[in-house]
Structure formats: C-alpha cells, structure tokens
Simulated scan of single mutants.
Amino acid sequence: MSNSQRFLSLDVFRGLTVAGMILVNNPGSWSYVYTPLEHAPWHGCTPTDLVFPFFLFAVGNAMSFSMKKYQELGHATAVRKILKRTLLIFLIGVFLNWFPFFRWNAEGQLVFKSLSQLRIMGVLPRIALCYGLAALIIHFWGERRAFVIAGCLLLVYWWLVLAFGQGDPYSLEGYAGLRLDKWLLGEQHLYRGEGVPFDPEGILSTLPAVCNVIFGYLAGVYIQQKGKDYPMLCGLLVTGCLLVFTALCWNMVFPINKKIWTSSYVLYTVGIALLLLSVLMYAIEFRGWTKPAAFFEVFGKNPLFIYVMSGVVVKLYLLVRTGPDENLYGWLYEHIFRPIGGNYPGSLLFALFHVGLFWLLGWVMDKRKIYIRV
C-alpha cells in the first residue's frame, strides 16, 4: 500500500471528523437540533458523541507515521519537540476560549472579557494533553508497552472514579473529577453548559482519553505492518467488533458516558472507529472509490486550522450586533435559513452551510498547497 493511499484514508477519516465537529457545533438554533446531532444527556452515546474520540483516534493514526522521525532523534530533542507541540496546541485552545476578548454585558455595552473567568480546558487543550502524554508513552516504552499502559489507564481510571466518588460515582454530583477540577482549576474556570460548574474536558477524564490516541496509533502501526491485504482488513473489523461487544458488557457496571469519558466509552468509540476506518480503507484502498471521498479529504489536510477558524468565525458572529437583543448568528438563522426550511430543517441547513463554507476555505488552501502544521 503506497503512502498516498495510506494518507488518503487517514485524511478522509480526519476530514469526516472535522466536518462532523463543525456540523454539531453550529446549529442555527440550539432549540431545534435533531436528536442524533445532540450529545447524550448523561449516560449513552449518540453519533455526536463519536466525533471527539474519533479525532483523538485520528491523531494517533497520524502519529504512527510521524513518530518514526522521533525515534531517530535523541530523547532530549524528541521530548522537546513533543512538549513544544503540546504547549502550542494547548495555548491555541485557551486563546480560542478567550477570543474575541470582548462581550456584551446586560446593559448592552461591549466590555473586556476578564481572565478571572476564562475556561482553561476544552477540546483543543484536551487534544494537546492527550497527544503529549501518548507521544511520550510511545516514544519511551514502544508499541507493546503502550498497549499495556493504555489498559492500565482504563482500569486505574475506573478505580479512581469508584474510590474517590461520592454517592453515585457515575453521576454529575458524585463524580470524583468534578472535585478535582474545582480544586485544581477553580470553579470560575470551568464550563457551565450543565447549569453548574463542570468541565466535560476535565483533568481526571483526560486520562482515559489518552487511550483513544494510543489505540489510534496502534491501529496505524498494524495497518503499516500488515500492508494492503484482506487479512489486515479482517483484523480491523474483528477487533472493532470485539471492542464494541466488550464495551457494551462493561457498560452494565461502568456506563458508557462521554461527559466523564468512562473506560467503556473509550472501548466503544475505538471499536466503532476501527469499523469506520475499515469501511473507508475498503472503499478507497481496495475499491479505488476516491472521488466520493474527495470532499472530506479537503478537511483532513488542514484539520486543526479549519477547526480553529470555524470557532473564530462563529465567535465573531456572536460579537456583531444586528439589533438590541440579536447578534449576527441569530440573524442569519432567523432571516435566511429558518424562512427556507423551518425550525429543525433550517437549523440543520445553517450547520450544513458552515460545513460548506469551511470546506471552501480548505479547498482554497489545498489548491494553493497551503498546509498548516502545528
């Protein structure tokens, strides 16, 4: 299997994930979102809950190629490069949380966003930490030990949740990670989407999320070692099915839950990622169906940049006022997309429009051979 074929499958997988992120993050109205495009209220897993772990899995896939270069470097140089990349992605995430630095207050005045309530964690900070920890584990301990360490992380996390949780350790109130985040980060720096200070990308739940990256790396190594043949494809399919089955069994005692990133959730999402990757590899590498995949390939070539720009543009929408109680985001939905499709279809059209908008950005960059790597 040629490098171009390998990278095409990875680009498409990453591209699907980035397009999914933009789709689920930008409905025209959060009051009108189709159920599959919403996160599970607590336990359970919707298609939307697959998007973030898929991205971490794709990070691991890409690492199976890039880490080869690190092996040729001395430990000091490799660690420096890993930590530098980790810090840069983390800071970009914090920057995006703070952007656009101003907000409208209750009196309709534009005021500076105080750092005292800046959210520290989030999607990009978690990606950074998961990448950094996984890269260090793989660099120093290799593939086999990384697999063992991943298993240990899942079991240790389960023990920590049980040992330090209060009441129902799998509930929001009893989850041990909530107390850790309040103590380490402070309530004022946590996400408030649940109505209370709680960060779904908190410190403790980052431990099992590291495993999504490690398993993605191991899948990439497996594909390279086995090469383009049907036994390799069968191995991915069987492993994916076994992981999903194991996760569903574990779910009976350790519920699948994205917001606290349970160990069963890790196995479940990795299993489905393997199944999806198998389908993509069969379609692209084995059958040569590259044209239908071209749309998502564009997203996969500049995934981090396109994701960041999608956040920047939407945050600017919220800053631009079109009326006393209306911003540009709401105006676009109410005056363009809702009249076209109604409530739910209009909200979906709004999201699809932005998927197309950022695809266009990626397409222009690809045509000009602009690829931004962090």
Rank of each mutant, 00 (worst) to 15 (best):
E173W: 06
L204T: 08
R192N: 11
F198Q: 01
L178H: 13
D199N: 01
N212A: 05
Y191N: 10
T206A: 12
K182H: 14
P197K: 05
P197A: 07
L190E: 08
T206Q: 14
T206D: 12
L180S: 11
P169W: 01
L207I: 13
I203F: 12
L190K: 09
V210P: 04
L180F: 15
H189R: 03
L204A: 11
G174I: 04
R179Q: 14
P208R: 03
G202Q: 01
E173A: 10
L178R: 14
D199I: 00
P169H: 06
V213W: 14
T206N: 14
R179V: 09
V210E: 08
F198H: 01
Q188R: 15
P197Y: 03
P197L: 04
S171M: 03
L185Y: 05
S205C: 08
E201S: 06
L172Y: 08
Q188P: 11
V196M: 13
Y191A: 12
R192S: 12
G193W: 07
Y170M: 00
S205G: 08
N212Y: 02
A176E: 13
S171I: 02
P169I: 02
L185K: 07
E201N: 07
E194T: 15
L207C: 13
S205T: 08
H189T: 03
V210I: 09
A176W: 09
V196L: 15
